[in-house]
């Protein structure tokens, strides 16, 4: 077995029209993923049956049952196909599917989701951008903070000021600050 790992990008899919995956071998984790799909489809089919059963062709559960049935059948076929394939020898789950960087960024996103409401949009996003740019780029703190906060400011201006999207304020009373500036301009005009 060749232990020197060569990363082959063709498995990842460059665009949606060229999906990844291997045609003749099974990628690590593929079998488990397919099993999850089968279980999930079965569960949804059961749920869909519970909506209105076989009450009427026009029932609210008719199309959900039909589609979840298609999901289940196709997932079962895919499971058989996946089970017949040989596991590929030159890929491992932790390297090719979920390398450390992906796990770290995914963890960042989870933390972001948890902090968004209590802390508010601006501090959470600043932390997220600075931390992830630092980890990915490994450049100086000066670069990291300038790029991170600069782009955050731009996004904030577009969404908050131009499009009036009321993002969670959290600990910074940004709505009051904006109003203050509005009054200032209104007073000056």
């Amino acid at each position: 077995m060749n232990h020197e790992h060569v990363h082959d990008e063709s498995h990842e899919g460059h665009a949606d029209a060229q999906p990844g995956g291997l045609a003749s071998e099974r990628r690590p984790g593929e079998l488990a993923f397919t099993i999850v799909l089968v279980a999930f489809s079965g569960f949804l089919l059961w749920e869909a049956y519970g909506i209105s059963g076989f009450e009427a062709l026009s029932g609210p559960g008719a199309i959900p049952m039909a589609t979840t049935f298609v999901m289940l059948v196709s997932a079962v076929i895919l499971l058989f196909k996946a089970a017949r394939l040989k596991l590929t020898a030159d890929e491992t789950f932790m390297v090719d599917i979920t390398p450390p960087l992906v796990l770290v960024l995914a963890a960042f996103l989870v933390v972001y989701g948890l902090l968004l409401k209590p802390l508010g949009f601006l501090p959470t996003s600043a932390l997220f951008l600075v931390a992830s740019i630092k980890i990915l780029a490994r450049r100086s703190w000066g670069f990291t903070i300038t790029v991170g906060l600069g782009s955050l400011l731009l996004i904030y201006l577009i969404f908050r000021i131009v499009f009036s999207v009321l993002i969670p304020a959290g600990i910074i009373p940004e709505a009051e600050i904006i109003q203050f500036f509005r009054n200032l301009f209104a007073g000056g005009a």
Binding site: G113, F128, L129, I133, F159, V165
Partner: peptide, 28 residues
């Protein structure tokens, strides 16, 4: 550089999903 682009895409995705209906649930 991707090291900057990737975090920006992620943040824009979050704000974008939130903006559609002002809902944190949509972000999840």
């Amino acid at each position: 550089p991707r090291a900057v682009l990737i975090p920006l895409i992620l943040l824009l995705s979050i704000v974008g999903a939130y903006a559609v209906n002002n809902s944190i649930t949509d972000v999840y």
